[in-house]
Design a protein around this nucleic acid. Structure first.
Lengths: 213, 213
DNA sequence: AGATTGAACACTTTATTGATTGTTCAGAAA
DNA sequence: TTTCTGAACAATCAATAAAGTGTTCAATCT
């Protein structure tokens, strides 16, 4: 049996235990027994228990990333719509994942606390997708604000922090969070830009006048 | 001695103890002794220990609010500049307050955890100031985006959440936080609005052409 | 009467103990 | 040699007891 398949076996056994009994209540000895090996041998494949959890999270996250990438590059949608869909997808995923299963939340907080670099890695990945989204928009000839795309992605993340791990920061329900995210996105797209707002206002009046006539 | 001056005396004694030994290490008996009264008597003036802490925080916060209001209504500044100053002032104040004194942080987290409504009250106050800022801008004839001002203030708060109690959410240094807040504000003012961005781009080229000639 | 006390109570925090468990590594097995 | 084991170790966790504290209220004082 190759080294990678052993790793997979360990990850698989751990995933079952973690999701059934929780991270804290699962012992290395149990994982080892499930794989028909000694506890010591686990350490030839993983530096420690938390690294197994990280591997599990990583695998799950890769799927999520692929999903996000599809949203970011969706055809027949404008860049703002795609960014909207992207951020909403992230909010909903994390909300539901943490909502329905306290054991997932346990693992998430554990990793987030002891491995902040893992969180950074996830954020960096999502930033890359936002950059790809913008580059795709450029390729399609959509109008884009000038400036460094990487930095712009960083700022978008900053402004939407509250919606990334919602239940760690507030106890708002999903509908309220969605309403707020929508509002923040409107701000970013057109909110505090008086010139643009004035144009919209003019347009609105024109439409109103036309309707009255 | 009137009831209010007794309250003040209690708050004063508690403030000294809290800032010197910390909230947790101060007992009601000690505060009572400092005021030359029995522990039980404290409860004729405050419902509980945490309410004394809240009174202290409240007093300090009123000063802060007044400061913010001055910034929000500063003459000779455009609305965007005033909003910028406002949010930067908030970031710097909380950062420094929590940075220099772990005992303040202890009290803050305590109140934040057991009295979420107090936090909401503070947020509502600051929102009111943002609304006042906008109304003042309108009065001065500045161009403003249409829409409900109260809601707009709420969204501005959402987008700048990360900068409100910085060290509870990240371990970024003040300069990094300032840079990020600046970036987020740019986003809100003109960032993801392609039309506006295009205008700026045109302007930039005009200037460049002029410089080349 | 109203204001104040301080002992009593319930609750939380801290200290201590013992059991559990992540991790290591000298040696056995292949 | 390389792979693996499992007893040993150190660190952590759970349970318990002990001490301390926020809060209450019948009794006391003014």
């Amino acid at each position: 049996m190759t080294k990678d398949t052993v790793r997979d076996k360990i990850v698989d056994a751990a995933k079952k235990r973690f999701s059934h009994f929780g991270y804290g209540k699962t012992t290395m000895a149990e994982i080892a027994t499930d794989c028909a090996m000694s506890p010591g041998n686990l350490y030839r494949f993983f530096p420690g228990k938390l690294d197994i959890a990280e591997a599990i999270a990583s695998l799950d996250y890769e799927d999520h990333l692929e999903h996000l990438r599809k949203i970011a590059l969706a055809p027949n949608k404008t860049a703002p719509d795609r960014l909207r869909d992207l951020l909403f997808a992230e909010l909903r995923r994390t909300y539901h994942k943490l909502e329905k299963d306290p054991r997932v939340l346990e693992m998430a907080t554990q990793i987030g606390h002891e491995r902040p670099q893992f969180i950074n890695w996830m954020l960096a990945n999502e930033r890359k997708i936002i950059v790809e989204l913008m580059e795709e928009a450029e390729r399609r000839g959509e109008m884009l604000p000038p400036g460094d795309k990487e930095e712009m992605a960083e700022m978008i993340q900053s402004a939407t922090m509250k919606f990334r791990y919602p239940q760690l920061w507030s106890k708002l329900t999903l509908p309220k969070l969605e309403r707020e995210l929508d509002g923040v996105l409107n701000l970013m797209f057109e909110g505090l830009c008086p010139q643009r707002a004035a144009e919209r206002e003019q347009e609105r009046r024109k439409i109103a006048a036309h309707a009255a006539a």
